[in-house]
Amino acid sequence: MSKSVIVIGGGIAGMEASAYLSAMGFNVTLFEKDEKLGGHLLNWERLFPTKRLGSEVLTFLKKGMDDKIKVHTNSNITKINSENGKYFVTNDNNEIFEADALLITTGYDLFDARRKEEYGYGIYDNVITSAELETMFLSGKPIVNKQGKVPKRIGFVHCVGSRDRKVGNVYCSKVCCVTAVKQATEIREHLPECETYCFYMDLRMYGAKFEELYNEAQEKYGVTFIRGRLSEANETIDGSLLVKVEDTLVGRPLKMTVDLLVLMVGFEPSKGTKDIAKILNLSTNSNGFIEVADEHTLTNVTNLKGVFVAGTTTSPRTITNTINDARAAAAEIACYLNLYTIQSRNN
């Protein structure tokens, strides 16, 4: 009988790893807390840096999911026991599943922007998050503010909930800079009359084609980049927002009214990730994500034998990296279950 793997979390990493593991002949059971597989990808219209549709990637991921994979949606994990190298996973229907290895792909949650009170999210009508803007794009409806007006000026605030000791997150979330650039250009496509401004501390355009997107944003789309971190936003009488920022390159304070303020919210370990870490007693790192056995060489291995991780469960990362990481995790698990001699390196 072939060995079995339980994958917890049906986002990008969970789907891709399940696909590979099943293709390699393992019995795969995938748990997802929501109704549908796909995770955050379901809420994203277009992807950086290519602006291809997110749904295309989802279709690709779904194609990999063969019929042998047992998928349990709307299913939360309540208990995990281990005995003689086997894991027994209980879900909220009190069903018990057995596996030889676990893969945790519970991923991230977006930062709750209300925690940055001075930016006014949840207080002022026209302060929204990057995810909400994406939902607007996805809905296909015209882009308007809360008062139903077409915005003439939109500001994007980078690093909301990232690189900020005051909210307890010192790390960079990696995807927000390029997402802001992508969204600013998309706004210009939808609303050619609307001015777009990005307020950034550092622009981290490290990935393939990111810099090209940035160039395009400046040259073709006329997005304005202002180096300065927002200190606070204030609502004016007509519902627009007065933002205060230091234009650090000019060296003077700058005031600006915008009709819509988009907060580029960062990544935090998801509730699911935190819960599983607690259930299994998995080590977490100083940023709250799951700790891996070695940052360079054992990026899918945890402190527990037979428990593996992939994707944004261990740190913020892009979709490209997540897919790669999922495949790497599948290979790691295969080595572990098939007792390949290369495994001995890990100890």
Binding site: E117, E118, G120, I123, Y124, E232, N234
Partner: peptide
């Protein structure tokens, strides 16, 4: 209080 806009509002 300007950094806790909920209070002034």
């Amino acid at each position: 209080t300007h950094l806790t806009p909920t209070i002034k509002r």
